[in-house]
């Protein structure tokens, strides 16, 4: 199943503060291990792209505008998919 969302990380803007990691509802962000960006920080990485919902919470709390966020377009016809659970941010896709 295709990911609902996608983030593009402008890695060299990242200062490795980790605020995005703390708010990601699907826990797919982490700071790089043993790897540094040009500014000397451990940049954020997506560990499970398939799980991204495109909620943009990472981008919302990011102080350095590291993220660009895309979300899959909503279908106009009635969907046969399961209705989204109200607590969907805790569900892994």
């Amino acid at each position: 199943m295709a990911a609902k969302g996608m983030v593009i990380i402008d890695e060299n803007r990242c200062k490795g503060c980790g605020l995005c990691v703390s708010v990601c509802p699907v826990h797919i962000l982490k700071l790089a291990d043993g790897r540094f960006n040009i500014r000397g920080y451990r940049p954020v990485e997506v560990i499970d792209p398939e799980a991204c919902t495109g909620c943009a919470m990472c981008a919302t709390i990011c102080p350095d505008v590291v993220f660009t966020v895309y979300r899959r377009k909503m279908r106009r016809e009635p969907s046969t998919a399961e209705p989204v659970n109200a607590k969907s941010h805790t569900i892994r896709w």
């Binding site: 060299n12 500014r39 102080p63 350095d64 993220f67 660009t68 966020v69 895309y70 979300r71 899959r72």
Partner: peptide
Amino acid sequence: MIADMELVFKYPESLTPRVTHYCPG
């Protein structure tokens, strides 16, 4: 993937591309 996705968060035009001098976080 971008083809059937919509941009929901982008870099604002009212910011320059410069990375700020502010501390991490």
